[in-house]
């Protein structure tokens, strides 16, 4: 067996970054209208230098539509993947994710409420869906944690996952009630709950970017704690981890990540479940290495999934959640089978 370094080395960062950049370029080039790489260079150069665009078609697709979309896809993938990795480490359970905990569903309920009843917050810069999604992600977390603490002081894995499943069911029935009341908006709601990053802009990308940097930073700062948790919660306490504080901080950070992602792209399942597994196969379970790898991996995975969603049935577009779930389910079963064989 090869010796692993404790931290992610610079060249490893570079390799992952280059792969991500290549996939990014690929996704920007390919679409309903294919744009050659050289044109992208020209358009970007002109845009940055403030010169007038020479190629009207390329610039009208590229700058306002495709680049922000692919950017949002990459950032959402990275954020969901980091959140999933943190959950899996914290709960020492490779099946844990925002979706299994019910945080995603909770966030989705918040956003659906905003859409169904046309809730608008005056004076708040971003849309009510975002605020409500984050709020509901928080709320879900508080409910899940509150219940878990009530039932089990030490907040064990089984309790949390069980409550997550029950909570997801509860939320989905609540969602159906909301949809019944707002049947005129059912189309926009369903498309949105399946997940789509169609039409997302630079503001969304900026929000995602800031969230990823802040929350991802907090989580990466707790890599050692996550390592301890993924060996065992009791072990974490024995070696001196402030278990309850670390746990709460990580869960809150994760819920912010998920809340922002859901508000922008809807519930895109399986990203936070599958990419950490794949990253773990490549760099091992140490979170100092796993978290950066999962972040890049999540970005790549979701960009490719979005590419398939856009191009497979061109000119019609699949929702991205359908693609990730299709790909994700197959990969997940494969990984599960592998781990059972061991």
């Amino acid at each position: 067996m090869k010796i692993r370094a404790e931290k992610f080395r610079l060249w490893e960062y570079l390799v992952f970054f280059i792969i991500t950049a290549v996939v990014f370029c690929l996704c920007v080039c390919i679409g309903s209208v294919n744009i050659p790489l050289s044109d992208i260079g020209t358009v970007l150069k002109n845009a940055i230098l403030g010169r007038p665009q020479t190629d009207a078609l390329a610039s009208s697709i590229l700058l306002p539509v495709r680049i922000p979309r692919v950017l949002c896809v990459a950032l959402t993938g990275a954020a969901l993947s980091v959140a999933g990795t943190a959950m899996q480490g914290l709960l020492k359970n490779p099946l844990a994710d925002g979706s299994t905990l019910g945080v995603s569903s909770g966030a989705a309920l918040g956003a659906v409420l905003a859409i169904a009843f046309g809730i608008v917050f005056p004076g708040i810069p971003f849309a009510a869906t975002t605020v409500l999604a984050i709020l509901f992600a928080f709320l879900s977390l508080l409910i899940i944690l509150g219940l878990a603490y009530k039932l089990d002081y030490s907040l064990s894995t089984n309790t949390i996952i069980l409550i997550g499943v029950i909570y997801s069911m509860f939320v989905s029935s609540a969602m159906n009630i909301v949809i019944t009341f707002a049947s005129d908006k059912i189309q926009s709601i369903t498309f949105w709950t399946m997940g789509s990053l169609q039409g997302s802009g630079y503001t969304d990308a900026a929000l995602l970017g800031v969230t990823l940097v802040l929350c991802g930073g907090v989580i990466l700062f707790h890599a050692r704690e996550l390592n301890a948790f993924s060996i065992g919660e009791d072990n974490a306490r024995h070696i001196g981890v402030n278990v309850r504080r670390a746990k709460l901080l990580i869960l809150i950070t994760v819920s912010i990540l998920i809340g922002v992602c859901v508000s922008i792209g809807g519930t895109i399942g399986f990203v936070g479940l599958v990419t950490p597994h794949m990253a773990r196969m490549i760099v091992g379970p140490n979170h100092k290495r796993l978290l950066p790898a999962a972040m890049f991996g999540g970005a790549v995975f979701l960009m490719l999934a979005d590419l398939i969603a856009r191009t497979l049935l061109n000119p019609r577009e699949l929702s991205i959640g359908v693609v990730t779930s299709l790909v994700g389910a197959v990969v997940f079963v494969f990984i599960f089978y592998q781990s059972r064989k061991r």
Binding site: K92, N93, P94, I231, I239, R280, P285
Partner: peptide
């Protein structure tokens, strides 16, 4: 001890 992930011996000891 039930360790879910494939940490190396040294990683566990270092913790």
């Amino acid at each position: 001890h039930y360790v879910g992930y494939s940490f190396t011996v040294e990683e566990v000891v270092r913790l």
